[in-house]
Nucleic acid binder design. Structure first.
Length: 555
RNA sequence: GGCAGGGUAGCUCAGUGGUAGAGCAGCGGACUCAUAAGCCGUCGGUCGCCGGUUCAAAUCCGGCCCCUGCUACCA
């Protein structure tokens, strides 16, 4: 029976391009997962969008003498371009700036307000008298109250690592104007998270299929007890608060952005001409909603968003939040300010998408941080993609072309035991790889598929069709025909991971039509099928690339 | 400080009670269809340290050391 699956992917903040860490953390796993489920014939929807509100966008616009709209338009276009060129197959990548999103957000806000889960209260915030605006904690700097560091940020001291309240800073100053911020009382709406603490504990505790790090961390938060949080701000750039007398304030981004999963589904349904279709993912209890995130986003998706959903009522809670750990680059944490990152637009201008998709999947940080190095990237490309998989395809097809007139060889002989065994292994791999992908064990899934390429190479060496063709043409025909079937199967198994090169391998093996439409199964290729001229699937990379790319880091 | 993850062959890592594994690097071999790729064999580890449970521990328990991340009213 077909399943219903929603891949809800992190909303990137619209003030810079995407880097490889974000891709490995959320977009690539979501894409592999979604491609697999589509091929399986499941009702699959993958959505996300640009997170466009909040202070950083406004300030960026001011620095550039531009407008928030211009800043986010540029970022949004960059995201779309990256997804297109890297093969991240969203069904909808929208933005939190749409009228639909504002509508859905306000509906949710009002319902929670009516139910008493949102209340109003005074709070103290720091106000910059020169810039005439309230300041987020990180826009205030000053002396750290715990150590003697003088340039601590209002949320955390970079020197000693302690977190603090911005009001604790010694001699605070605004990062916008250098003025001394003054504490001011201001009225805000608070989400009563404490209402949901017990319900959330009861819900999270049995989620044993969650990754241990995600579940344990969430249980820790809940056992400490959730604090109510202000969900409005004194800013102009954001979704208006749908209450009388609140014209000067906006709904705060972290409350609003997570609602994007729901509003994006609704937008997709409207676009598809069936406005009620969104309910398939949000109201059918059998539907699975999977939230792809980096580990820094776990609290929002395992406590705050579920609390909002519980308060609203009638909508599905997350099925899983397979948050990934971080990818470090050559041993150091990625950093925009130090330009220590692999920027996707930059990468895609110089390299092919599949080798990076492969490399990131093979080292995906599913349980702990992992380190990306260009040396490992080149090695995986040359040893695994070129030598193991690409070469398997190439050697089989060139042999067939030379000795069997570029057609899938026909054979009278019944398959040898080795051939039957190999085909059976490929067929069995569909369940095995599928189960790994469905369980978000993507490294294991890819390893299983690539292990078959190695088996196929071993099979070829044992059968030696290049020698057999001289004394036992039937045997060579049978071997090559089998190898072509195996290649067709492997192309399908690898399609979720390598969507650019797998269709080419599929076509080289004589398959016709769309690989994804053929479904999650091995497609047989009939004897006599003409084969196209073989061309390498991957380019072997020169070692000099390592030094060139490393030299770019930190520049 | 608290919490979490990790410390296994030169390198990157898999392995959660029963004679230590993979890939790469090194060495050797047979082969020669292929982007000199592929295949086979081999070298190589007191599984962070100490103690405990057990017939049996990398695997369970306790303590300690080291690394990384998180610690949410940043987005």
């Amino acid at each position: 029976m077909a399943e219903t699956v929603l891949a809800a992917v992190a909303w990137p903040y619209a003030n810079s391009a995407l880097h490889a860490g974000q891709i490995a953390g959320a977009y690539l796993p979501a894409d592999i997962f979604s491609r697999y489920h589509r091929m399986r014939g499941n009702r699959t929807l993958m959505v996300s969008g640009s997170d466009v509100h909040g202070t950083p966008v406004t300030i960026r616009a001011e620095e550039e003498g531009s407008t928030p709209e211009a800043v986010i338009e540029r970022a949004h276009a960059s995201f779309l371009d990256t997804f297109e060129r890297f093969g991240i197959s969203f069904d909808l990548f929208t933005s939190t700036g749409t009228p639909n999103h504002a509508e859905v957000t306000q509906d949710l806000f009002l319902r929670l307000h009516e139910q008493g889960h949102i209340y109003e209260a005074e709070m103290t915030m720091l106000f910059d008298p020169e810039a005439e605006r309230f300041l987020p904690d990180r826009y205030v700097e000053g002396g750290c109250p715990y150590c003697d560091y003088n340039d601590a940020r209002g949320d955390q001291c970079d020197e000693c690592g302690r977190t603090m309240d911005a009001l604790e800073l010694i001699a605070p100053r605004s990062r916008l104007s250098d003025a001394t911020p003054e504490p001011r009382q201001t009225n805000h709406c608070f989400l009563k998270l404490s209402d949901f603490n017990d319900q959330l504990l009861d819900w999270v505790d049995p989620q044993t299929h969650w990754r241990p790090a995600v579940r344990n961390f969430t249980l820790g938060l809940l056992r400490e007890g959730l604090h109510d949080r202000a969900i409005t701000r004194d800013i102009e750039w954001g979704v208006p608060v749908p209450l009388d007398g609140w014209d000067e304030k906006r709904i705060y981004v972290w409350f609003e952005a997570v609602i994007g999963y729901l509003s994006a589904t609704k937008e997709w349904a409207q676009n598809s001409g069936q406005p009620d279709e969104w309910e398939a993912w949000w109201k059918d209890p059998a539907a699975r909603t999977v939230y792809f995130q980096g580990k820094d986003n776990v609290p929002f998706h395992t406590t705050i968003w579920p609390a909002m959903l519980l308060g609203y009522g009638g909508l599905n809670l997350p099925y899983d939040v397979p948050a990934n750990q971080y990818v470090t680059i050559s041993g150091s944490k990625a950093s925009s300010s130090r330009n220590w990152a692999i920027w996707m637009p930059d990468y895609l201008d110089r390299h092919d998408p599949d080798p990076l998709r492969y490399g990131l999947t093979a080292m995906m940080p599913e349980t702990s941080d992992t380190d990306f190095t260009w040396a490992e990237y080149v090695r995986r490309n040359n040893d695994e993609l070129v030598a193991r998989w690409g070469n398997l395809v190439h050697r089989v097809l060139t042999l067939t072309r030379r000795h069997f007139d570029a057609r899938v060889p026909g054979t009278e002989a019944s398959p040898s035991p080795e051939s039957a065994a190999l085909l059976a292994r490929v067929d069995a791999a569909f369940e095995e790889v599928g189960a790994h992908i469905d369980g978000l064990r993507l490294r294991a899934a890819l390893q299983t598929a690539m292990g078959l390429a190695q088996e196929a190479n071993r099979y070829l060496d044992e059968r030696a069709p290049w020698a057999a063709v001289r004394e036992d043409r039937e045997s060579a025909a049978e071997t090559l025909s089998t190898a072509i079937q195996v290649i067709a199967g492997l192309a399908t198994l690898l399609q979720p991971f390598l969507p650019f090169t797998s269709p080419r391998a599929w076509a080289l093996a004589g398959c016709e039509g769309e690989i994804e439409a053929a479904g999650w199964r091995r497609t047989p290729v009939a004897p006599g099928t003409p084969l196209p001229e073989p061309a390498p699937l991957f380019r072997k990379l020169d070692e000099s690339l390592i030094d060139e790319e490393e030299a770019r880091l930190g520049q």
